[in-house]
Design a protein around this nucleic acid. Structure first.
Lengths: 193, 193, 193, 193
DNA sequence: AATGAATGAGGATTCATTCAT
DNA sequence: TATGAATGAATCCTCATTCAT
């Protein structure tokens, strides 16, 4: 999916808007004000509001997929790859605090089936990549095998999500990267044989 | 807080509405249709829409608090108490699938400060209770001490939340109680010394 | 017209409400809150909101008429009577600042013909009494005759009204009785032969 | 302040509405019907109802100020200027009977502080101009000096206002300009040395 | 004499979207 | 590529009033 610069501008503004003021404030009016064009002009670039959200999710999905693939291709141990996943996400959200609001608020996309299935797809992508790394770790003997890989993945992702959510709800009141580092240490201790 | 039967009816309808159709569909109109009275009639029982949501959260908060306190008072080991927390929540959400939609969707309450602080309060309550149980376990030698208690709590709650969220997003496509049981087994193995 | 004590209470509350918060805040709800009874209970005492306003105007009308008649019956010169009219009104409004808001805001009663004709009647009453005093003064040689009596009445009443209105709009920021005394001195100088 | 033609249309309709049916009937719905557009369309041209009333008062204020300044700049005696003020207002209201309903009904604007202060400002403007003319007359020896200028102004404006109010409440049942002429004659006789 | 529950009509305002230009 | 003007449907909420109790 290629987006024009105007389209990118609109997507960025959407993310900002959702992050700063919540999904209920993502209106065409607010969007057009933020971009600096008129309301109808928005419709020159996207057929509907849903289309904007779809593009937004597509953007996240692609980024996520790309990142996971890059990490997967590294010549490194499974635990190092998992660490990279954690570090990447904490750094990424830390720098783009707006994104977490969108990515961890599935509720937002409930009403439209196209949106919610796109969301589901992104979540599944991340899940299966993490699962792959965990399995890799178990096969290489780095990760404990007494617990099923899918449970471990669930625990890993659940912890990551909750930390980011707490960070966001607390008004970004702590250093996500640092706190994330501590969380990873804890998880590492749990995973290791 | 005591509620009249009509008020309870309105709260129930709100939960149903949020659960089935999402927060965006929680409108006074839909609510009044569901209850079977006119829109203005709603305002005889609650001063505003915010008041309804506040009552709804208050109801959840009280229930949650009561449950945690009951479990805390049991003569049982810390791990048994944690297990009880997990079992209770999975059974509870399993039976009232609507509730999870409300409780794990903090985004919903962002725009109103009264609501979001109430939500925060409920989350903090659960968090501190779980933390207490974990500490208890560490002191009694049941729970490993090489990982800080707050990290363990985060991991526990994060896993619980994510499982419920996946269950909900998948359209309740699996048995929450069973799957929750498996998750608890995994967590138990991780926690134990 | 005789009013029950509850009815008097309602009328008083109406005056207070109009005076303190304006006619737009004279709602059955606010009224019932102020009186301390339920909304339907208001309708036990008055058939409708219009009926309340009618009673309120009737009360003012009677008081006004009584006062004018009392003054008219005094054994005093015409100018003394006029002075009494001024003194009475300034003292009366000064003590019951609420009343001026009702009496000089004819706009309030426009929509209902029963109300506006009642209002008109009260105004006409005051007007004809003042006119009578002026004529009396002209006939007795106290008041200049080069200006028609009806013009003089208009000027007298207009000045009284404007002073009270300014006092009210300024938030009762000056001593009405004192300022009214000065105004009367000025008018007296104008009226005298 | 420049207004689009649609905005002028809306302001005109507001004046008409207030004049013909009273402030309580100045609703967005009635306004939109009168203008011949939908209710939301009104909001394309004014951000809120208050904004409409503010524009309306601004329009009156400007007109009033302009008129007073023009009269003040004339090479004429003070009494001639005062006469011009009276003639202008009676002619103006006679031709635009609607305006008096707005301008002399301060009660209307009580609830909104922005509106009531604008109203106060307009009133003060008129007051100080009249006061200036009276002082000018006293200094030039045209106007009697035994009565303070501010009392005379109050009397002048009070009489003007009351005549217009009576005219309006009587359903425009007499010729305002003629009757206003007679009133001015009376006032002139009072003012002159 | 009073009330709890209810309502039809209407209040201001916002929404996503369309259309002519 | 953009906009000014518009709108149907919906938002939350308030009003005076009624009715059964």
């Amino acid at each position: 999916m290629e987006f024009s610069s105007r389209q990118k501008q609109i997507i960025d503004a959407s993310i900002e808007l959702i992050a700063r003021r919540g999904i209920q404030e993502l209106t065409i009016r607010n969007l057009s004000e933020m971009v600096g064009i008129s309301e109808p002009a928005i419709y020159r670039h996207f057929a509907s509001k849903t289309e904007i959200l779809l593009a937004l999710l597509g953007f996240f999905g692609e980024q996520s997929e790309k990142t996971f693939k890059e990490i997967a291709s590294r010549k490194a141990s499974a635990l190092n790859k998992l660490q990279a996943v954690f570090e990447h996400h904490f750094r990424y959200f830390g720098e783009n605090s707006s994104f977490s609001a969108v990515l961890f608020s599935e509720e937002i996309f409930r009403n439209d089936s196209a949106l919610s299935s796109k969301m589901f797809q992104i979540m599944q992508g991340a899940r299966s990549h993490v699962l792959g790394f965990v399995r890799e770790g178990q096969m290489s003997g780095q990760v404990r095998e007494d617990i099923p890989a899918d449970q471990l993945s669930l625990i890993l992702i659940g912890a990551l999500r909750l930390l980011v959510t707490q960070w966001r709800l607390s008004g970004f009141s702590f250093e996500l990267v640092e706190e994330g580092g501590r969380l990873w240490e804890a998880l590492l201790a749990l995973l290791r044989v």
